[in-house]
Design a binder for these strands. Structure first.
Lengths: 213, 213
DNA sequence: GACACTGTCAACCAACAGGATGACTAAATA
DNA sequence: TATTTAGTCATCCTGTTGGTTGACAGTGTC
């Protein structure tokens, strides 16, 4: 957690009264909490600043406003993503890992979902990137889909399933307890119970097991 | 589209300049659009009124304000739910139906998701309903879970899967293209393509087929 | 046709949001 | 230490939000 300190000078950053980087990080952390909890429209810069323990003016100062803060948050997240995902571990294990990562700290997932809900078709790839009629299909398939396709050839996944669609479905399935807590509750599931995370992970592993060739 | 009209009296409701019920319905319809599109916090009463073609004041007038409108919407939705779901059709077909219903008109689903995201643990069942230590488990299992459990006994679903958890996961999986359009896009999936709905339905059917005993 | 009632609306209002401004001061530098 | 720079904040400003008010007009009744 704490950064290496040169033995001579360099006062402990966490003790300084003023520290731009620290303030920035605190704002980012608070923003993650707030945006994940209430979404962009629902979040209040005042609340974010309060949570971070700084003046709300620092948000425009450092990030150029609420939206800038949100973008910075997305960025800092993209930077550190892709931490998970071993190509050599069995798919079943991988899925279990994702369940734990997701349910352990749902904030990033919630951010993702909110992003999905407010998604406006987004910018279509620039006209220059338009594909010619000849070259059909996948434009530089993302690594995770490719990995899944590989597993399919290995026989780890049934051949009648589309890797991309499966990945999409599995992602949502893993996210289910976070996205639909009220539905879960209606089904008599207590997503906040102590053992739930492990139980759901096990369930997902079993489900994946059924998808083998 | 147009409603049957009794030949004698009963002035065509759609022609009257003033019609409380019509205004109410138009507001509900517009509210469904707006809330589904932007969520509660993001929706604007002005936009809802504009879309409904009435003055925004009618929202407080008829529904007691923005929140009242939202609750009324939830209510009118609960009233007409449970339309789908034949206990006799194969699970696989049922899932396909849900995909079509969901992707055909994603508004209700989006409402549900937004509800899930803004869900605050909600009111725990009143203390009087607390279960004694003796009677463990499912408090009056909801019909859909029970149905799934029945299918499991029939051998339609593998016995190692928990019906409730499976239902939760499947619900989310079906919803995936609506909830995570940006993720789909990143995977090279075009959820707005003409054939997509059928393609995804087929995929979900195949997936379910793998879950049979 | 007169009248009361209900549906509708334009205009106004208070609360609150996010952002801008300028003062103050700790930290860095000479 | 003197001076500059950068970090922080209290205060104000403007736009927007949901809601209220009161006038007015369509509708049904006698």
């Amino acid at each position: 957690m704490s950064q290496q300190r040169s033995p001579r000078r360099a006062p402990e950053p966490d003790q300084r009264l003023r520290d731009a980087e620290r303030s920035r990080q605190q704002l980012l952390a608070a923003a993650l909490d707030e945006f994940a909890a209430k979404g962009y429209a629902g979040a209040r810069v005042q609340d974010i600043a309060d949570r971070a323990g700084v003046n709300k003016q620092l948000i425009p100062y450092y990030f150029g406003g609420k939206e800038g803060l949100y973008r910075a948050l997305e960025q800092s997240w993209l930077d550190q993503e892709a931490a998970l995902g071993g190509p050599d571990m069995p798919f079943e294990t991988l899925v279990g890992e994702y369940v734990h990562a997701t349910l352990g700290d749902p904030r990033l997932l919630r951010l993702l979902i909110w992003d999905g809900l407010t998604d406006r078709g987004e910018d279509a790839p620039p006209a220059s990137a338009a594909r010619e009629p000849g070259e059909s299909g996948t434009p530089s398939e993302p690594p995770d889909v490719a990995d899944l396709r590989r597993r399919q050839e290995t026989g780890e996944i049934a051949p009648d399933l589309d890797p991309a669609l499966l990945l999409l479905a599995m992602t949502a399935a893993i996210a289910a307890p976070v996205v639909l807590p009220q539905v879960a509750r209606r089904m008599g599931i207590d997503t906040s119970a102590p053992g739930f995370e492990a139980r759901y992970a096990e369930q997902m592993r079993r489900l994946v097991r059924h998808l083998a060739g």
